[in-house]
Design a protein around this nucleic acid. Structure first.
Lengths: 336, 336
DNA sequence: CCATGTTTTGTTACACGTAACATTATCATA
DNA sequence: TATGATAATGTTACGTGTAACAAAACATGG
């Protein structure tokens, strides 16, 4: 019967035990399995728990068993809708399994990635879902030392640390470019923003497809984030650099939609004058007028799969498949 | 000199200390302030830390000092762009201040809210930012027992638990409705989805404005989430129930844009035949053709302010202002 | 070279829940 | 009633970093 809680700190198991007149071990047993405790005590303990408003404390568990029941998720950005949907997929699996998600983002900066991973690890996360396929040596070291399962998402090409789940961005961009060419487009410009690994892969796919068809690639690039207004700006730039542009392929839907609206404002007919295609297939691309041509990517499923495989690994199963390559889908819409 | 780390667990301070030949206390001192340690030891310890890839462990801190340096953020949904922007605002303040964000969402369910708050508290978060203005008794009890600062965001009307930062949704809806009426709209229908507290306030504002102007309100409601397709469906319903509808005011931009596209497809001219207004003012509403009329809300600033006030409270300052009412802004666009 | 002060390092105890083991209470049966 | 088995509860120790106190090493001045 240790000292009861005099300061108004939040109640501990000891406080509950004191109130009932047992040891905290008995209360602990009740919490894990009420039947381990005699019937009269069950109600008394339940009452005391309710009364004091007891809230469990995970810290001791993390300390002694290194089990936090939390999963770290590290993404480049939280505002990008792509990642919002990935998160939804992840949580749809983790939450029912009793895992808390610890979200962090690094704004596409390698240094920030290092520090975010260190932070997540310092909270004792049981597993990590990270994005991007390139990581610094320090990040790799931290991950190896931490000894927890790690899954990389978004891209399925680079050799994974342990396991990767994503799509083949290069192949997807190649396919859409070919598709546009088949539709008769010749002077297709690529709009790229936020030059991360995935964007570079897409550019590679676009350029290969153009060259393979004897066409000249032209790529507009910026390091800033994509947005509708950037799409509009790129359209202006494209028409200036190549007035007879007849196709635009964008690294994501935002740029495409921005470009499309800019065309509408400028009196350029889509798809008659210029064909426009996006990437990802967000809801809006499937509701707007005209429907946007796009590469539909399985973002939510990617999150789900990553979470499922992570849980499986946490249950002790080995990596079943080092690289899981998810299919993408071309959607013609009405804009090419 | 305790047993060195035989199992390949992640290294602890003790492991580092063993490698250097000092006690872990010395290493701990070095980490907090290198000057507390003799110069020759400084390099040795730094080397050992780097060598082993030491990552600090927050669990002992949470346990002994109840300081996790983590802030819990509880939102109804993560996919809704409104909340994505609130999160961005929050993180823009918390991250530089050295706080980790623990994100959770409850899908608009009261039971889920209870359990998510308990989970966040079980991780020892130092403070909480929650949404919605109504909370169950159990939630209130948990928050009071936890003894950490709590800030409610989104709505600025209901009496806050401690401190609320948001907008007056009812007044905003009233203002936009009046605005539409001034523009000559008479038969304005309200499109409502996800009937949460805020939506109810908006409906109230809309209905008051209609009644105050001698008009008859008509509100289409559903409990499901809003989407572009739902906006399209609502448009059909509205025209069926009230064929001479000349205005549509939506509880958010998604519904409005969906309705607008549906009009375009059906050959209904916006704004000539029907005026349409949304709520929030996302990027797309300011890029599309026609520009969407909308109530622009300061989502990111709301997040920033919430985080700033929370930090101030964590530094021991008292609540400076129980309710902070942020201004909204009517944007006429080209759709009303 | 001692006395005193200062710097550097070490020791001990603690936070809280639970595994593992130990003890006590309860019950059925011979 | 005694005995053994089972159920119910208690005791101890642990995980990790750090505050608080203690000790040792070093420096300075007389």
């Amino acid at each position: 019967m240790k000292s009861s809680n005099t300061k108004n700190k939040r109640p501990t198991l000891q406080d509950v035990a004191d109130l009932v007149g047992v040891t905290k071990m008995t209360v602990s047993r009740f919490l894990r399995n009420p039947d381990q405790v005699s019937v009269p005590l069950q109600t008394k303990i339940a009452d005391a728990l309710e009364n004091l408003g007891y809230i469990p404390n995970r810290a001791p568990d993390i300390l002694s068993k290194s089990k936090s029941h939390a999963i770290g998720v590290l993404l480049p950005s939280l505002t990008n809708q792509v990642f919002a949907e990935v998160i939804r997929g992840i949580e749809s699996i983790l939450e029912p399994a009793g895992y808390q998600t610890m979200l962090a983002h690094y704004g596409y900066s390698k240094e920030a990635e290092e520090s975010r991973i260190a932070t997540l690890l310092s909270y004792g996360v049981d597993g990590l879902i990270i994005s991007e396929s390139y990581h610094t040596e320090r990040v790799r070291k931290m991950l190896s030392v931490a000894g927890i399962p790690v899954i990389e998402i978004m891209d399925s090409v680079s050799p994974p640390i342990e396991q990767a789940i994503g799509i083949d961005n290069q192949a997807a961009a190649y396919a859409m470019t070919e598709f546009m060419i088949q539709r008769g487009r010749q002077k297709i410009v690529y709009f790229a923003a936020r030059m991360d690994q995935r964007t570079l892969f897409k550019i590679k796919g676009y350029e290969s497809a153009m060259l393979d068809n004897g066409l000249t690639p032209l790529c507009l690039k910026t390091n800033s984030a994509s947005s509708f207004t950037l799409g509009a700006k790129f359209l202006k730039d494209a028409l200036q650099q190549q007035p007879d542009t007849d196709g635009i392929f964008c690294t994501n839907d935002d740029l495409a939609i921005g470009a499309l609206y800019a065309c509408q404002k400028a009196g350029i007919k889509v798809p008659q004058d210029i064909g426009i295609a996006g990437f990802h297939g967000h809801d809006i691309s499937r509701a707007m007028v005209p429907l946007l041509a796009t590469v539909v990517t399985p973002r939510e499923e990617m999150g789900r799969l990553a979470a499922e495989h992570l849980l499986s690994r946490l249950q002790g199963n080995p990596v079943s498949q080092r690289v899981i390559n998810l299919p993408f889908q071309l959607e013609a819409g009405e804009s090419i």
